[in-house]
Computed example of a mutant assay.
Amino acid sequence: MYFDLKCENLLVNIQDPHRPVCKIGDLSLSKVKQQTLVSGGVRRTLPWMAPELLSEKSNMVIEKIDVYSFGIVMWELLTGNEPYLNIHCASIIGGIVNNILRPKLQHGEIPNGSH
């Protein structure tokens, strides 16, 4: 598990623009185990944090937290925006935990598949 997947931690080599290579940097929070006990409060960047990391219901997390963060990264790459940029931290936490806050796509932001 990586625990801190976000665009700031992605390194992209575009020497060959048809085959860019992306690598993940800043492995300080990554974990090797499949299930990891998380304690000590918020350790990641808030907008990319999965509900499991923000909820007090469980201290055990699995690789799904990186899947959530990957989705936020894909949204960020698609829109060119930072998620929840003008929203207060407490509102972000409450919205993510209660499953009522997710980044939105505006009309015209979804690629139509033609190149």
Rank of each mutant, 00 (worst) to 15 (best):
W75D: 05
L11Y: 11
H107E: 14
N86R: 13
Q15V: 14
T36D: 04
I72R: 03
V38N: 01
H107A: 15
W75M: 08
P17R: 09
Y84Q: 02
L11A: 07
L54H: 09
D4L: 04
H107G: 07
A90W: 01
Q15I: 14
N99I: 07
K6Y: 03
A50G: 03
I92Q: 01
P51V: 01
D66P: 10
Q35Y: 10
C89V: 08
H88R: 15
C22N: 01
L54F: 00
C22L: 15
S69F: 05
L27A: 06
Y84E: 00
N86Q: 13
R19I: 06
V67W: 05
A90S: 14
L46E: 12
P20C: 10
L27G: 02
M49P: 06
L78F: 05
G95Q: 09
L37Y: 08
A50I: 12
P51E: 12
E63N: 11
L29Y: 05
E52G: 08
D16M: 06
N86P: 03
N86C: 05
G40K: 04
V97E: 05
E52A: 08
I24G: 09
H115M: 11
G80N: 09
L78C: 14
R44G: 14
S30V: 09
Y2D: 01
G40E: 06
W75R: 01
I87S: 09
H88D: 13
L27W: 13
I110D: 09
I72E: 07
V42W: 02
G113D: 02
K104H: 11
K33S: 13
S28L: 12
N59K: 12
L46M: 03
I14V: 15
L29H: 06
Q35R: 13
L29T: 00
T79A: 09
P111R: 04
K57Y: 12
L54G: 04
H115D: 11
E8S: 14
N112R: 08
C7F: 03
L78Y: 05
I92C: 04
K57W: 06
E63M: 11
G108Y: 01
K6H: 12
K33G: 07
Q35H: 11
W75C: 06
E52Y: 10
L27M: 14
S58C: 14
L10F: 12
E63L: 04
I14F: 13
K6V: 00
D66L: 03
L5R: 03
L85M: 12
N13F: 09
S69C: 08
V67K: 02
H115Y: 13
E56C: 08
M74V: 14
E109D: 12
Y2A: 08
C89L: 12
F70M: 12
G95P: 00
H107Y: 14
G25L: 09
